[in-house]
Structure formats: C-alpha cells, structure tokens
C-alpha cells in the first residue's frame, strides 16, 4: 500500500505500447537478478576479489615461482626472508612462499570438495525428508540431530586417531560431518515450499514426487544451498587447520596452512615471524573471503538461513 512496496506493478513485461516498455526488469528471482544484486554488494565484491587473488596465487603462482616442496634441506632451515627466499624457509628447509602456494592448493581443494560433496548429499537428504514428511522425516531428522549432538571435532578426533588419513580421507571425514547443516536447511526450506501454491499446482496437474522435488523444490531451495555451501568452504578450511594444530592434519610431505602455522607458532616467541604471520594472514583472509561472499549471497538470494 505504500510507495516503499517493491511495486510489482511497475515491473510489467516490455510490451509494445505499454508505459513500462522501456524499463529493464529489476533484480529479482530469475538468474540475472541475484547476480546483479550480488555484484552491487560491497561484501560480495570484496569476497570475490579476495578469493580470485588467493586462487591465482595458489594455482598460477607455482608456474612462475618454482620451489622444491618435497626434499628436506636441513642445511637451509629457518632462513630469514631475503636472498632466494622472499619469505624465508621453515624448519625443514622448505621455501615458505612456495609452501604457502602448495598449502593453499590443498586447503582450497579440500574446501571445495567438501562443499560439493556435502551440498549434494545434504540437499537430497533434506529434500527427500521434507517432501516425504511423517515418520520417515522424523526418523531422518533424529539421525541428523544425533550427529549434530556430538561435536564435529570430537567425532573427527576419534576417527582421525584411528585412521591417520590422507587428503582424500580428511575430505571424506569432513564431508561426513558437514552434510548435516545443509540437510536441515533444505528440509526446512522444503517444508515451507511444499505449502506454496506453485507446488500444489504441480501436484494437482498429476506431477510425480521426483518431478516436484527436482523441478520445483530443489531449484527453489538453491539459494539456501548455495549460501550454505559457501560457508562450508570456509568452515572446512578452518577445521583442517584445527586438526593440524592437534597434530592430526595432513601427513607430510603434504603442505597445508594449518600445519605451517602450528609449526611456526612453536617459534613465535623467538622472532621467527615469517613462519607465523604469512600462513595466518592467508588462512584468515581466505576464510573471511568465503564468509563475506556467503553473507552477501545470503542477502542477494534473500534466504533466511540459520547458521548452525
């Protein structure tokens, strides 16, 4: 009733002779709309730029700056920055700058892999649970609650202490713990979408369950899913560093920022700053970037998301 309404009447299709003809469609629910809204958002731009820079550094960097990240050179250990090592070397004689690139690769790969895996599993689980409803839904959600009740780190510690896994293993373990949140979110979204009239219309036309889920429910829950996936990237990178701190990270000679940071922290009070602050800065920057992007996506896609 007020002029602050989004004024849907002002957004008619560009029909010939219609007064709205010259106007471009405003930002909205289609595909172009959120992208435009997103790019207008300062947080989103900052996040995207940071992510692009980090990715460039990690993946394109080694093409220009080649280092040996496999052989231990104890004679070259803990050199301060300068000479052939712009950021010095670490306790094993690895070049820190080169190791940052290598560590970033595993962090990013892990983050994305976990995000993709959990998104797929969580979305299907949540959508199915919410669509079926009833006792099945109730049981499926109790399973999720059970996993959520035991803190992720606790489960991880138990599992990692048994397997001492590789990158792939850690991806698998983190995925096992991270699908819960998207599953809950998607279910919640599906429960509200189910009552929406367009879903009822599809059912009334004789649309089958899979059709309703895949054509209507999942695409409309996509906003929630994308936001949650973005946060999952950030959380997984963070969790990997925590595991590294507890000595349960990637086994050598793999590099990751958390292990570098933990190793450097032993020398923090002795002035070996190049072993601490570069990995810390990159780690925090990357995680902040994904969080900013997720938060902006959340606004752009207009999702009500409970971050758990």
């Amino acid at each position: 009733m007020t002029a602050t309404d989004p004024a849907p009447l002002a957004e008619g299709p560009p029909a010939a002779g219609s007064p709205t003809g010259a106007r471009t469609p405003a930002a909205g629910r289609g595909l172009g709309g959120p992208a435009v809204a997103l790019l207008r958002n300062r947080r989103a731009r900052a996040g995207l730029v940071l992510i692009a820079l980090v990715a460039l550094f990690c993946f394109a960097g080694p093409l220009f700056y080649r280092t040996d990240q496999v052989t231990v050179h104890l004679d070259l250990a803990e050199l301060p920055p300068g000479g052939g090592h712009p950021l010095g070397t670490d306790a094993n004689g690895y070049d820190v700058l080169g190791r940052l690139m290598a560590g970033g690769r595993s962090s990013l790969e892990l983050g994305f892999a976990v995000a993709v895996a959990t998104t797929v599993v969580g979305t299907l689980y949540g959508a199915f649970s919410g669509y079926v409803g009833g006792v099945t839904d109730s049981l499926m959600m109790r399973v999720v609650d059970t996993f959520l009740a035991v803190p992720g780190l606790v489960l991880l510690l138990i599992m990692v202490s048994m397997f001492s896994p590789s990158l792939g293993g850690i991806i698998l373990l983190l995925s096992l713990l991270s699908w819960l949140s998207p599953a809950r979110l998607v279910r919640g979204e599906v429960l509200t979408l189910r009552t929406r009239e367009f879903v009822q219309a599809a059912r009334m036309m004789g649309g089958t369950g899979p059709r309703v889920v895949l054509r209507h429910l999942v695409p409309n829950a996509a906003g929630v899913v994308i936001v949650s996936a973005t946060f999952t990237v950030a959380d997984s990178i963070l969790m990997l560093s925590t595991l590294s701190f507890l000595g349960l990270g990637l086994p050598p000679p793999n590099a990751d920022w958390g292990t570098m940071l933990t190793g450097g922290l032993d020398f923090l009070y002795d002035g070996y700053w190049w072993l601490v602050y570069p990995p810390a800065a990159l780690l925090v920057l990357t995680v902040v970037a994904f969080n900013l992007l997720g938060d902006a996506l959340h606004d752009a896609l207009d999702v009500r998301l409970k971050r758990t």
């Binding site: 947080r43 950030a234 963070l238 560093s241 925590t242 701190f245 958390g258 940071l261 933990t262 922290l265 923090l268 009070y269 810390a280 780690l283 925090v284 995680v287 902040v288 969080n291 900013l292 938060d295």
Partner: peptide, 21 residues
C-alpha cells in the same frame, strides 16, 4: 561486520596463542 567476520575466521588456537604472545 568486518570485525565479526575476522574473529569468526581465525582458527581458535591461533587466536589463543596470539593472546598469549
């Protein structure tokens, strides 16, 4: 917002050790 995100994005252990330092 930036402060909140930075806090959120710091590994807990690093944060603790920074405080100690």
């Amino acid at each position: 917002t930036v402060v909140a995100f930075t806090l959120y994005s710091m590994p807990d252990f690093f944060f603790g050790l920074l405080l100690v330092a």
